[in-house]
Deep mutational scan, measured.
Amino acid sequence: QEELVKAFKALLKEEKFSSQGEIVAALQEQGFDNINQSKVSRMLTKFGAVRTRNAKMEMVYCLPAELGV
């Protein structure tokens, strides 16, 4: 569980995922086979993730800066 949270936060820091499906796929690539869209959705809510525009003006998920991840 701890490893999943770390990987999840690291992915969001990249600010390149525009959908929950993309986050699920990226986590599965890292070996988290039991991850699915509903789990990702709950984690996004739990950590207060928001959708914002990145440098390329794409809408992407990211974590609020005050979490200091």
Rank of each mutant, 00 (worst) to 15 (best):
Q1G: 10
Q1H: 13
Q1L: 12
E3L: 12
L4C: 15
L4T: 03
V5S: 09
V5D: 14
K6I: 11
K6Y: 09
F8R: 01
F8N: 00
K9V: 15
K9F: 15
K9L: 15
A10N: 11
L11C: 04
L11Y: 03
L11A: 04
L12R: 00
L12S: 00
K13A: 12
E14D: 07
E14N: 06
E14G: 06
K16P: 05
K16V: 07
F17H: 07
S18Q: 13
S19Y: 09
E22I: 03
E22C: 04
E22L: 06
E22M: 11
I23P: 00
I23L: 13
I23Y: 02
V24F: 05
V24I: 09
V24Q: 05
A25C: 08
A25L: 11
A25H: 10
A25N: 09
A25E: 10
A26D: 02
L27N: 00
L27K: 01
E29C: 06
E29G: 10
G31H: 03
G31R: 03
D33Y: 12
N34K: 10
I35P: 01
I35Y: 01
N36Y: 05
Q37H: 12
S38H: 13
S38N: 13
S38V: 12
S38T: 11
S38M: 12
V40C: 01
S41G: 09
S41E: 14
S41A: 14
M43V: 01
M43I: 04
M43L: 13
L44P: 00
T45M: 11
T45I: 14
T45C: 07
K46F: 15
K46G: 08
F47N: 04
F47W: 06
A49D: 02
V50K: 09
R51K: 14
R51P: 04
T52A: 13
T52K: 15
T52V: 15
R53L: 15
A55E: 12
K56V: 07
E58M: 06
V60F: 04
Y61T: 02
C62V: 14
P64S: 05
E66Y: 09
E66P: 08
L67D: 15
L67R: 11
G68A: 10
G68K: 06
G68H: 11
V69I: 09
